[in-house]
């Protein structure tokens, strides 16, 4: 099978499994909403939160919900030993990684499609004033996060203490993504949006993505071999 076809098959498999149960989307979306709610209690004063808090809460919710989704997606592969089956298939290994990444990223974007309007609504944040730039930040940030997350969740799938170890590995490594996402979003949410700064952070995110995806593609083969 060619590279692109493998990617499409793996991604399609994940999305079909998901549309039948809706488990990952449902649990991580609810978890993201609860994250926003819990953090809102910490930040809101006199019924209002400043725009920096809205940006921070949005990205924290994305990061936490992302961990949950990643853990669940790979738990599913482990339960039925399908991860082993996929690895035994005569297809290029990096294609499996890209397929899983595309699947995870799609699920994450569905969750974000719910959380972003909710944050805009609850915090009176002008998230849609510069919709294209905002979408770029979300997409680039989620890509970087999912790129690292897919690699480590796949590697940890066979480990005993994966539930506690995944966030411990994921958060320090993806902190550049979170910083750039929060700063970029905060620049957009200021009363008069700072577009050049937001664009600079977007470029930063894109370069992180490039580095992280390259490294992950490179590391997937040797780390998944038994």
């Amino acid at each position: 099978m060619s590279f692109l076809r493998t990617v499409a098959v793996v991604m399609r498999k994940d999305l079909v499994v998901e549309t039948r149960s809706m488990e990952v989307v449902y649990t991580s979306a609810l978890f993201a909403v609860l994250c926003v709610l819990v953090f809102a209690f910490g930040f809101v004063q006199d019924g209002r939160a400043d725009s920096a808090a809205a940006a921070a809460i949005l990205w924290i919710a994305i990061a936490f919900a992302g961990t949950l989704a990643l853990a669940r997606v790979f738990d599913r592969e482990r339960q039925n030993e399908t991860l082993r089956a996929m690895l035994l298939a005569p297809v290029p290994r990096p294609a499996l990684y890209v397929g899983k990444l595309a699947g995870v990223l799609t699920l994450l974007l569905v969750v974000e499609a719910l959380v972003v309007p909710l944050v805009a609504l609850w915090f009176q944040a002008a998230l849609f004033r510069h919709a294209a730039l905002m979408a770029g930040l979300i997409l680039a940030g989620s890509t970087g996060y999912a790129a690292v997350g897919t690699l480590f969740a796949a590697m940890l799938a066979r480990s005993r203490s994966r539930a506690s170890l995944l966030p411990l590995l994921l958060y320090p490594i993806t902190i550049p993504v979170i910083i750039a996402g929060v700063r970029g979003t905060a620049a957009l949410l200021q009363p008069d949006a700072d577009l050049p700064v937001a664009r600079a952070w977007l470029m930063m995110l894109v370069s992180f993505d490039a580095v992280f995806i390259t490294l992950s593609l490179w590391l997937f083969e040797p780390t998944m071999t038994e």
Binding site: L151, F152, R158, S159, S161, L165, L168, L169, T223
Partner: peptide, 20 residues
């Protein structure tokens, strides 16, 4: 941490962390 509590196969896993 991974090295210590990761169980079998954690040597390769942690190597990936070090590369990152």
């Amino acid at each position: 941490l991974l090295r210590r509590y990761g169980g079998p196969g954690s040597d390769k896993l942690s190597a990936a962390v070090a590369v990152f």
